[in-house]
């Protein structure tokens, strides 16, 4: 088990002028709606606890108003919590002084925004170097560091341009470069790709995954798009009305959705695309069933289908050189596929 990068414990955020009174009602079990009705206080985050592992892409999902944008801002304290604790590398950040907080933000975390939030009066290079400039890094050092990250996101030729001269996708690559330039161990991404068209969005997801393969950072990613979450998420958390409904791997989420709210996200998404070999195992057959061919448990649905097509023998699911986890037959694969396809269309 990897150590936890972020641990959130019983976190609450109430917006309004009587947060303590609202907290009292919430702890008595009153709902967010009744607190708003009785006190006029808006509950943003309601008793949320979870942990983010080091090096993973943790995707926080929810509809608008679910509190996900508040939660991501609690982690770098753009919003201060009403109650509860947030540990970063085992250290509480809720009690940091203003100076310690500024220091932490400069040193170890950065953020990417939905509207890009670039500085229009700065060139692409100066935008990428923004965090380093704020931290007091000298011109030469920060420009060479910024140039390096611009190369990583493919924008080096545009270093001297201004943001308004770039397309939306390129502007967000500048936003990503700005976040990478300070070399943080944690990047917060708030609906970072939501403003982009689907093709650009997929391209940005690929850039992010490529970067993540080279240098493992912890990424806390807020999104309302399930396909995005399934595509990039190591784990996914689903939020509704300020509460956390479910936390799990993409497979756990699509296989065992906690409730109808989670299921609602599947409606427009073909979840079967995210099935892996291990999800297709025939529960009726013993793992020791002798099959001539095998696939690793993380093989994609398409790989499994290719192997099954035109052959009658089942497939063994096993890590290379490991023991068998189970067997996939044409009918078990078809059954699983139907389960997803038919559920999605209902």
């Amino acid at each position: 088990m990897k150590p936890s990068k972020i641990v959130v414990q019983n976190l609450y955020k109430v917006f309004g002028d009587q947060p303590q009174e609202a907290m009292r009602l919430l702890k008595l079990g009153e709902s967010k709606e009744s607190v708003f009705h009785n006190l006029g206080q808006v509950v943003g985050v309601n008793n949320v606890s979870f942990a983010v592992n080091e090096g993973e892409i943790f995707v926080l999902m929810g509809l608008s108003g679910s509190g996900k944008s508040t939660l991501i801002r609690l982690i770098n304290r753009l919003v201060d919590p009403t109650s509860g604790d947030i540990l970063l590398d085992g250290q509480s950040i809720t009690r940091l002084s203003a100076k310690e907080l500024v220091d932490l933000r400069r040193r170890d975390m950065s953020m990417v925004f939905q509207s890009f939030a670039l500085m229009p009066h700065r060139t692409v290079l100066d935008n990428a170097a923004f965090g380093l400039e704020i931290a007091g890094v000298g011109r030469r050092a920060r420009e060479s560091a910024a140039m390096k990250v611009l190369e990583q996101v493919g924008l080096a030729p545009f270093a001297r341009k201004y943001p308004h001269q770039l397309s939306g996708g390129m502007q967000q690559r500048v936003g990503l470069a700005r976040a990478l330039a300070v070399n943080p161990s944690l990047i917060l991404m708030d609906e970072a790709f939501s403003a982009l068209d689907p093709l650009k969005r997929a391209e940005m997801q690929d850039i992010l995954l490529d970067l993540q393969r080279e240098q493992r950072r912890t990424i806390f990613f807020v999104s309302h798009d399930l396909e995005e979450a399934l595509r990039i998420g190591t784990r996914i958390a689903i939020m509704e009305g300020g509460r956390l409904v479910q936390v799990g791997t993409p497979q756990e989420i699509i296989e065992k959705p906690a409730d109808d709210y989670v299921r609602r996200f599947f409606r427009s998404v073909d979840t079967s695309r995210y099935l892996l070999a291990r999800d297709l195992i025939d529960p009726g057959l013993s793992p020791s069933f002798a099959a001539t061919r095998s696939v690793p448990p993380s093989a994609s649905l398409n790989d499994v289908l290719h192997s099954l097509l035109g052959e009658h023998d089942p497939l063994t699911v096993a890590e290379q050189g490991g023991s068998s986890l189970g067997v996939i037959t044409s009918s078990s694969a078809l059954r699983k596929l139907a389960e997803h396809r038919l559920r999605d269309t209902v």
Binding site: R105, F113, L118, M119, F130
Partner: peptide
């Protein structure tokens, strides 16, 4: 824009830096 101010803060601007490097130029 709120997110521009938040960007300044998220990258560790002090109150002065926020004013001089984000708010006044914009």
């Amino acid at each position: 824009n709120t997110e521009q101010v938040e960007a300044g803060q998220a990258f560790g601007c002090s109150a002065w830096q926020l004013l001089l490097k984000v708010q006044l130029p914009i």
